[in-house]
Simulated assay, not measured.
Amino acid sequence: MKDSYNDSRNGMASKEQIWKIRQLEEALGWKDNPARLNGFMKKYYQTERVEWLKGWQAHKLIESLKKMLQKQSEVM
């Protein structure tokens, strides 16, 4: 994913980044409640849809979700 920072769509999130976000959403148990991810993105990235993220925002979101997943697994 190193070079998937920028998609050919004017710096928007790449297909690979969107795929990874969806994968992490499912791992966190948020897939059944899309409002969780949408609310998180709205709060921290000022957008409500994954498809509207810029490449750098998607990268930061992926890292945030990975940290949340790691903390969730530490608690259990």
Results as ranks from 00 to 15, higher is better:
residue 3 D to E: 13
residue 65 L to G: 00
residue 69 L to V: 07
residue 75 V to W: 11
residue 12 M to R: 10
residue 41 M to L: 07
residue 65 L to Q: 03
residue 55 G to Q: 03
residue 33 N to A: 11
residue 13 A to R: 01
residue 64 S to W: 02
residue 2 K to A: 13
residue 7 D to W: 07
residue 60 K to M: 12
residue 57 Q to P: 03
residue 72 Q to D: 08
residue 67 K to F: 05
residue 70 Q to T: 13
residue 31 K to H: 09
residue 64 S to Q: 11
residue 69 L to Y: 05
residue 59 H to Y: 14
residue 68 M to E: 10
residue 5 Y to C: 05
residue 74 E to W: 13
residue 1 M to D: 13
residue 64 S to T: 09
residue 56 W to N: 06
residue 68 M to N: 05
residue 33 N to H: 11
residue 45 Y to R: 03
residue 10 N to K: 13
residue 37 L to G: 02
residue 2 K to V: 12
residue 20 K to V: 06
residue 51 E to Y: 03
residue 29 G to K: 01
residue 66 K to T: 04
residue 38 N to G: 10
residue 57 Q to V: 02
residue 11 G to R: 04
residue 68 M to Q: 11
residue 46 Q to Y: 11
residue 32 D to C: 11
residue 21 I to C: 03
residue 74 E to L: 15
residue 58 A to C: 02
residue 30 W to N: 04
residue 20 K to C: 07
residue 25 E to T: 14
residue 10 N to L: 11
residue 60 K to N: 15
residue 25 E to G: 04
residue 9 R to T: 15
residue 50 V to W: 01
residue 42 K to G: 09
residue 44 Y to Q: 06
residue 4 S to N: 12
residue 12 M to F: 09
residue 21 I to E: 02
residue 67 K to S: 15
residue 32 D to P: 02
residue 69 L to P: 00
residue 60 K to R: 15
residue 31 K to E: 10
residue 56 W to D: 10
residue 72 Q to N: 07
residue 12 M to V: 14
residue 44 Y to S: 06
residue 20 K to R: 15
residue 73 S to F: 08
residue 66 K to L: 07
residue 35 A to Q: 13
residue 22 R to V: 10
residue 62 I to P: 01
residue 10 N to E: 14
residue 65 L to F: 00
residue 60 K to P: 03
residue 66 K to R: 14
residue 3 D to Q: 13
residue 20 K to A: 08
residue 19 W to C: 10
residue 71 K to I: 06
residue 9 R to E: 11
residue 61 L to C: 05
residue 16 E to C: 02
residue 47 T to L: 03
residue 40 F to L: 15
residue 71 K to S: 14
residue 27 A to M: 10
residue 25 E to I: 08
residue 29 G to R: 00
residue 61 L to Q: 00
residue 18 I to T: 09
residue 68 M to H: 04
residue 52 W to I: 14
residue 48 E to Y: 05
residue 59 H to G: 05
residue 40 F to E: 11
residue 16 E to H: 05
residue 62 I to V: 06
residue 66 K to A: 08
residue 39 G to P: 04
residue 51 E to P: 02
residue 27 A to C: 08
residue 67 K to D: 15
residue 25 E to N: 13
residue 46 Q to K: 15
residue 41 M to C: 05
residue 21 I to W: 00
residue 72 Q to P: 03
residue 55 G to W: 00
residue 75 V to S: 14
residue 20 K to M: 12
residue 15 K to N: 14
residue 63 E to P: 03
residue 40 F to M: 14
residue 32 D to G: 12
residue 28 L to M: 07
residue 6 N to T: 14
residue 52 W to R: 12
residue 3 D to P: 08
residue 31 K to M: 11
residue 30 W to S: 05
residue 37 L to I: 08
residue 35 A to H: 08
residue 16 E to P: 03
residue 11 G to M: 04
residue 26 E to Y: 13
residue 47 T to H: 06
residue 13 A to L: 02
residue 26 E to Q: 10
